[in-house]
Amino acid sequence: SDIKVHVGDITVELHNVSEEFARLVEEALRLGLNEEQAKEWAHKALH
């Protein structure tokens, strides 16, 4: 599904992702990663 993740003043739109993936992206953003890094990190975490 499509999910918007908000962290501080950052909003990341995720398309066709699981809630778990979105949660991992949100966690990575909170750790200070940028959007691209957060998506990559979440992807690796799920595989």
Rank of each mutant, 00 (worst) to 15 (best):
V7G: 09
L33H: 06
D2C: 03
E13P: 04
R30E: 08
L24Q: 03
R23T: 07
E20F: 12
R30G: 10
Q37E: 14
V5R: 04
N16W: 08
S1K: 15
E20R: 12
A42N: 00
H43V: 11
K44D: 14
E36F: 10
E27I: 14
Q37K: 08
E35N: 03
I10E: 07
R23W: 07
R30D: 03
I3N: 07
V5Y: 01
V17E: 07
S18H: 07
E27A: 14
H6F: 01
K39S: 03
T11P: 03
L31G: 08
A38E: 00
S1W: 03
E27C: 08
S1I: 15
A22T: 05
L24H: 04
S1M: 15
K39I: 15
I3K: 09
L33M: 15
R30H: 12
K39C: 04
D2V: 15
E36V: 12
E13K: 10
L29C: 02
L14E: 06
R30C: 07
I3C: 05
E26M: 11
Q37I: 02
N16Y: 06
K44S: 14
V7N: 06
G8T: 06
E20Y: 10
E26P: 00
A42H: 00
H6I: 15
F21G: 00
K39L: 15
L46W: 09
E13Y: 02
E20P: 04
I3A: 07
W41A: 15
D2Y: 09
Q37A: 13
L31N: 12
I10R: 08
A28P: 00
V17H: 09
S18E: 07
E35K: 08
E40Y: 09
L31W: 08
V12A: 06
K44W: 09
E20N: 09
V25M: 05
L14H: 07
H15T: 11
E35V: 13
K4T: 15
E40D: 15
A45F: 14
A28Q: 02
W41C: 07
H47R: 10
V17D: 07
E27H: 14
V5K: 06
K44R: 12
G32Y: 01
D2W: 03
N34S: 13
V7C: 03
I3R: 11
E36P: 05
Q37M: 10
E13N: 14
N34A: 06
I10K: 09
H15Y: 02
A45S: 12
E36Y: 10
A45E: 14
L29R: 04
L31F: 10
L31K: 12
S1E: 12
V25L: 05
H43G: 07
G32Q: 01
F21A: 01
K39D: 03
L33T: 01
F21Q: 01
A28E: 00
R23G: 05
H6C: 08
Q37N: 07
E20I: 12
L24W: 07
W41S: 13
L29Y: 03
L29D: 00
H6M: 10
D9Q: 13
E20V: 11
E19M: 13
E20M: 13
G32D: 02
H6T: 15
S18M: 06
E19S: 11
K4M: 11
T11R: 04
E40C: 03
V12L: 06
A42F: 01
N16K: 07
H47W: 02
W41F: 15
G8N: 09
V12P: 05
L31S: 13
L14R: 04
E19Q: 14
A45Y: 14
K44Q: 15
A22F: 05
H47Y: 03
D2R: 12
R23D: 04
S1F: 14
V7T: 07
K44M: 12
A22G: 07
K4N: 12
G8I: 04
L29F: 03
L46P: 02
E35D: 05
A45R: 12
H15L: 07
G32R: 01
N16C: 08
E19W: 10
V12H: 08
E36A: 04
L24D: 00
L29Q: 02
R23H: 09
E13V: 15
L46H: 04
T11V: 15
G32W: 00
A42M: 01
V12R: 03
N16I: 04
E35S: 10
V5A: 05
V5Q: 06
E20H: 12
H47K: 13
E19A: 13
N16R: 04
H43S: 11
H6R: 15
A28K: 01
E19K: 11
H6L: 06
L46Q: 07
L29E: 02
S18T: 15
H6A: 15
E20D: 13
E13T: 13
E27T: 13
N16F: 04
V17P: 06
V5W: 01
V25Q: 01
N16E: 08
E36R: 11
E26S: 09
L46I: 13
E35Y: 10
E40P: 00
R23A: 11
E20K: 10
A38H: 00
A22C: 03
A38G: 01
A38D: 00
E35T: 12
A38I: 01
A22I: 08
L14C: 05
K4Q: 13
E40T: 04
A42C: 02
L33I: 03
L31R: 14
D2M: 15
H43K: 14
F21E: 02
L46Y: 09
F21I: 02
Q37S: 07
H47N: 12
V5N: 06
A28I: 01
W41H: 14
N16L: 04
F21L: 03
A42L: 02
E20A: 13
L33D: 01
T11L: 12
F21M: 03
I3P: 06
L33Q: 03
S1A: 14
H47I: 12
H6W: 01
I10Q: 09
A22H: 05
D9I: 09
H6D: 08
E26G: 13
H43W: 13
W41T: 10
K4F: 04
A38F: 01
N16D: 11
N16G: 14
E26L: 11
E13I: 15
H43T: 13
E35P: 10
L46F: 09
A38T: 00
K4D: 11
A45I: 15
K39E: 06
R30L: 13
V5M: 06
K44A: 15
H43P: 01
H15N: 11
S18A: 08
E26W: 04
N16P: 07
K39T: 04
H6G: 10
A45M: 15
L31E: 07
E35Q: 08
V7H: 12
K44I: 07
R30P: 00
E27Y: 14
V12W: 00
L46N: 03
H15W: 02
D9V: 10
A42D: 00
E40N: 08
H15F: 04
V5G: 06
L33G: 01
E26T: 10
